[in-house]
Design a protein around this nucleic acid. Structure first.
Ligand SMILES: [Mg+2]
Ligand SMILES: [Mg+2]
Lengths: 673, 673
DNA sequence: CCGATGTTTATAAACAGCGGG
DNA sequence: TTCCCGCTGTTTATAAACATC
């Protein structure tokens, strides 16, 4: 009761999860190629017959980009690459970014904007409310999460071990609803309708005037004024990036950022508590990705995105058709502007915003997070059945996904189950000795809540060599860009409707475990008892199980801070071909171990210009000539295969190279099963 | 009402504040030495006649250490250094660490531990409750804050423009009380006495067994068991450092950290909500200073402090006598273990834990923050009266402090006004159009609350040359070590006693301004109305005044991540004379501009040992041979003069050099006025 | 003196991964 | 063996306390 409506505090994360595909242990000796799954092609000899091209990634150590023709056998390729990666070990290429050299637009690949925000060059038109989203279910653990993959619209149960494998499911999930929600209207739960009208609302525009133009972009949209506005599915970090990147010079004052966000996300003007601005400032300060600059006279402060950290995320990238076919694709994964960041980008989730197709508002975690794909695709490829994988490797080794598959949303398809689909997620494990977090399980709308699971980043880095030199920050940073999914209204519903008489603390999670990550529920209990001293303290330290982690990369871009040129590589607009990271990709194939420190820095022009990041150079058409393409990341150190969206803008990879167009691995995947 | 007792969420920060001493604008041409204040001595010719020695700091760029005999004219020296700094500009030395070569123990310099925690080698004994703390008042803005500098014990008002200048005031402020509070007992406000007994309490010890020994240190102390325990004045970050640094190998598992903290700070075992562990984990992940390592087999994770970021903070440093007279002093500012961090430490607050004298629990911000000293000391030295300084520069230019002086606590003296001194802080500006935050002004105990102010770090970096090369991260990091002050119980009192009928929202802060930094009060208002939708949204963007900031350093240690040796410079114990940073200090005097990148790295033995931070080498007597000495930092780029505590352990500065002993600038300062 | 802007710290939470039962 | 649960880690959201201008 205390907490009224208000959207869920943090955007509920939709899909994440690291899929372990192989054994990962050090039985590398036997898994070279005898991965008893059959068709293990060329072995580790990169002489892929199918016209596959492999080249080193210009900025990420131990990473290679593999361009595969659509006709190639993906499974074979993955098997071969995995073997190669395993063979090379931590010092050789162990991460592969797979791109299709053919082009194919997935069914439901492009969506319509569903609203007017940033209308421009929309491709085909498919109303978001009916948008066909590509949804995948991963077959990992989390058994309690029922598929709830509704083929038509309402979410009905789906028994496990079923479809899960083609995965490209353009069913109109209730998710479509969610997509629209955040745009306004769609108020879900009946809350006291406190339409606190904010009459002023226009000074924002006036203030925005200082910034010349460059963001004349939207503004037309909102026909919806005093709605209620759902919270957008983007994190503050993502929205700030959207805002800053919308300016040609990539600089914005705090006020402009406020204004931009308010204009593009009415939620913050209409519904959000005033504290949201505090959060914006907090994010600007907290993330070293955001750097404050000042005019020469020190009179004005601008916020910029640290060169090298700017993935040039823009709202239209995730919200608009993206009209990718425009400019030449280039694999800009993270190089963008700087050269001074050798060892940082290593992480397997280092690419770009993931999973949301163009113009899909409700992206399932746009940040650098990986969007895992079905594990069954790969497991068969290599290694033995992996006797003791993480947990579920075995069960889903067969393409028939057993129950317990989690839904994973892939880029384009927005069918993310809106909020009104009472699909019972395993609906039976509810009342049992509930000890897990939320399972509050109230009837309607909360189904999705428990269902989605996600995956973060770091954690469990298989540490190449343990105590080696140079490894100081093995995988380091790969600052995440913050776009996340949400599905909102879930949390809320739980809070508001459930009157939760004092004792109605679904035993689940009533007494917090020692590690005590606060849960919404335990908190509520507190509230009920009026902060009644709560029997805190649980004689700590229950067990002793240590986890096996490794090094954990430092989370903030190391950024050698050397000369820090930046001038030439703003990227974002005109594909800077001037700086050929690698001219001939082919001759780089099979490049041996490249230490994490000596990667790209040398290949860039050492014009040690001090600061001035990418500023002037990245003016060009904002968000235009960048095209996002689906790709896969194979991390042999991790034994993971993840789906990503690659922001293609790589000099050496011209249009003809990778077919540009919206390559959809989702289409390729079915071929494997 | 909702929020019961519970210590204030964040340790209330005691003293911080950057004092601007000069005009800072670009009228540098005229301020060379004609600072119409008279006695501007040797000009910028470093030929200081008084036997002053100047040497470059081994790790901080553009920083020199100046050792001044007690007999020297401080004012003159500062004036000369300032002129020099201004002359050299951003590329030359512009920060000076001033140390006294004589030794003098300030009155009330050493305090007793007041409790038993870590009893060992206490110097003289002066009970903390009666500890004579050195307190300064800065004469900056914040007019509402009355001096409340009680010469005896109770805090009585003191009219402005008075004493403020000798500043070394050993009056027994009620602060002494505060010091003890957090040790246990001292429960201040009457809270429902929920002595939730934690019977188990011993498993912690059992768990701690895995860590051999090395932290047998305390454990004796608590005669106070089921007290109520005040929250310690240290941040989580600081406590984690205390914990990790207590281990010989500087590694700890999460559990061990939990245990260590619980054992040393009963508050977390007895009083804190279970969420504190979540906070610990959060801090470990969030701060890149904490790095997770894993055993070769990947079975166990240890948390370590990133080499180069470890200031080797230990609880006994801030809580024990420190018995500094033991080993030879060495200016170890931040070198400690690594060499690979050239450009980071630059910041003017880069030294060590500040302000708390030995064994003072309630340190006023132990982190890298600077403890500013009286501004009036310097203003007269240089520059014109600064016609339009920040705000108050003029008014306090005279040593007579006008009203509006804030209290600033200096290292040793703990007299920080406990919580029961109803000194009316300006007691008159209370009811006026209250718009400021707390001024809730309930009778007793809240006086101190509003009084203390502090100072953060970054913000307003005068940017040496604006768009210059190399300046990429001007002052960069200087990760703060998190020790902060608290004075606790303040916040609480406000919350509990004031029943605050729903409408009793002291108009003060009732309607939040546009920037809306949430305030405790507006929150309470919310609570009263049961989260009543609150009239959010305030048509934002009031004025337009831009601030004049500059670059703002990235907040997390840049750490070049090169070889990353670390082996040799653990520091902390035996003064490593083996690594003479600068043999002959004198010949380094007046060293010209030294770029921020090429400073110390060359002077260290390049044994590029990969990781293994400082681990094995810094075993020695924990917290023993380091001695903390007061010093001043003159930053000519900033025109600031700040008082710091220097952890002396610098090879080239032997005992005889800087008299070791507790040099107290507070004593020197009076000479200037 | 206040409000906008910046910096940090504290807490709560949502998840992911893993290991033990 | 499975599955569930708790501990460990990672991030994001918010509220706050301060600082600076
Ligand atoms: Mg920042
Ligand atoms: Mg960390």
């Amino acid at each position: 009761m205390i907490s009224m409506k208000k959207s869920p505090k943090r955007p509920l994360i939709l899909k994440r999860k690291k899929l372990s595909l192989t054994q990962r242990e050090d039985n590398a000796s036997k898994n070279e190629q005898d991965s008893k799954q059959g068709d293990l092609v060329p072995l580790r000899d990169q002489k892929f017959p199918d016209g596959i091209r492999i080249m080193d990634h210009p900025s990420m150590p131990n990473t290679q980009v593999v361009v595969i023709p659509k006709t190639a056998d993906l499974q074979s390729v993955i098997g071969a690459l995995t073997a190669k990666g395993k063979q090379c070990g931590p010092q050789g290429p162990n991460k592969f970014i797979l791109l299709s050299s053919a082009e194919g637009s997935v069914g439901g690949d492009r969506h319509e904007i569903s609203k007017k925000l940033e209308v421009q060059t929309k491709r085909d038109s498919q109303v978001a409310s009916d948008g066909t989203d590509l949804t995948l279910y991963d077959t990992l653990g989390m058994s309690k999460i029922i598929p709830e993959h509704a083929n038509s619209s309402g979410g009905m149960e789906r028994n496990p071990d079923e479809d899960i494998q083609g995965e490209i499911d353009s069913s109109v999930m209730d998710d479509s609803l969610t997509n629209i929600q955040w745009l306004g209207t769609m108020n879900t739960d009946g809350l006291p309708s406190y339409t606190v009208k904010k009459e002023a609302a226009q000074e924002n525009i006036s203030v925005g005037s200082q910034t010349k133009q460059a963001d004349v972009e939207i503004r037309d949209s909102h026909t919806l004024k005093e709605q209620q506005h759902e919270r957008p599915p983007y994190s503050y970090m993502a929205m700030i990036q959207f805002a800053i990147n919308s300016k040609k010079d990539k600089k914005m004052t705090l006020k402009e950022i406020y204004t931009w966000i308010e204009e593009h996300f009415p939620y913050f003007r209409q519904t959000a508590k005033p504290g949201w601005k505090n959060s914006i400032r907090h994010n600007l300060s907290l993330h070293d990705m955001f750097v404050r600059e000042t005019t020469a006279d020190g009179k004005i402060s601008f916020w910029t995105i640290r060169p090298g950290a700017n993935r040039c995320l823009t709202l239209d990238q995730v919200y608009k058709p993206a009209e990718s076919s425009a400019s030449p694709p280039m694999l800009t994964v993270q190089i963008c502007e700087q050269k001074s960041t050798p060892p940082e980008l290593t992480q397997h989730q280092s690419i770009l915003k993931v999973s949301e197709k163009r113009m899909k508002p409700l992206l399932p975690r746009a940040g650098p997070y990986l969007i895992p794909i079905q594990p069954l695709l790969v497991p068969p490829l290599l290694m033995s059945p992996t006797t003791q994988l993480s947990l579920h490797t075995n069960q889903n080794a067969v393409c028939g996904l057993g129950k317990t598959n989690k839904k994973v949303r892939i880029a384009p398809k927005v069918t993310a189950i809106p909020s009104q689909n009472p699909k019972e997620m395993k609906k039976d494990n509810l009342p049992t000795t509930p000890k897990s977090q939320p399972s509050l399980a109230n009837s309607s709308l909360l189904s999705l809540d428990k269902t989605k699971s996600s995956s973060r980043r770091k954690q469990r880095l298989v540490l190449p060599i343990a105590e080696e030199p140079v490894i100081l920050f093995p995988e380091s940073s790969m600052f995440d860009s913050g776009v996340s999914s949400d599905l909102s209204t879930l949390q809320d519903t739980q809070l508001e409707s459930p009157i939760k008489k004092c004792t109605f603390k679904t035993p689940i999670k009533g007494s917090h475990p020692d590690s005590s990550t606060p849960s919404k529920f335990s908190e509520e209990d507190q509230v009920l008892s009026h902060h009644q001293q709560a029997p805190w303290k649980f004689t700590p330290l229950k067990k002793e199980d240590e986890n096996l982690f490794e090094f954990s990369p430092i989370r903030t871009e190391q950024c050698i801070t050397l000369p820090e040129d930046t001038t030439g590589f703003s990227f974002s607009s005109t594909p800077f071909k001037d700086v050929p990271f690698f001219d001939s990709p082919t001759n780089l194939i099979n490049s041996p171990a490249m230490d994490s420190l000596d990667l790209p820095s040398g290949s860039l022009p050492e014009s040690s210009k001090p600061r001035r990041c990418s500023r002037e150079l990245q003016i060009g058409t904002p968000g235009k000539n960048r095209s996002v393409t689906e790709g896969l990341v194979l991390d042999t150190m991790n034994d993971s295969l993840s789906k990503i969206l690659v922001d293609v803008s790589f000099t050496w990879l011209e249009d003809e190279e990778l077919g540009m167009g919206n390559i959809s691995w989702s289409h390729l995947i079915p071929e494997l099963t």
